[in-house]
């Protein structure tokens, strides 16, 4: 597998985070400023330019045991500082399927 760092030049258009899936159970996680992973988007480290994004991604990729497949994803940061996913895919990853699940969770 090609490292995400080698895949393409990292270019971001706005505030972004690094997200991945936790290795042991696969749940969606976000890289935090404390060099850890959190399931809570509000705890994610926000990057605002390509150099910051590249550094955060490199650090995330290095933690191969903690999480799988890290990549940079766009977010929206409100005036109140609240962080929301920047596209539908990330919205679904954060909040779950947009349909009712057949069985009660």
């Amino acid at each position: 597998m090609t490292s995400p760092l080698e895949q393409k030049k990292i270019k971001i258009a706005g505030p972004s985070v690094v997200t991945a899936n936790r290795t042991w159970d696969g749940i969606v996680v976000y890289r935090t400023a404390a060099k850890s992973w959190s399931a809570d988007l509000s705890e994610a480290a926000i990057v605002r330019n390509s150099d910051e994004a590249k550094a955060l991604l490199a650090e995330s990729v290095a933690d191969d045991v903690g999480a799988v497949g890290p990549y940079i994803a766009p977010v929206q940061v409100g005036d109140d500082g609240k962080v929301e996913p920047g596209n539908l895919r990330e919205h679904i990853r954060r909040t779950g399927v947009t349909i009712g699940q057949p069985a009660q969770v």
Binding site: N21, D25, G26, I27, V28, V68, G69, R89, I92, R93, G96, V97
Partner: peptide, 8 residues
């Protein structure tokens, strides 16, 4: 075993 959006 695949890795999908929410989990494996």
């Amino acid at each position: 075993v695949y890795l999908q959006l929410h989990a494996y």
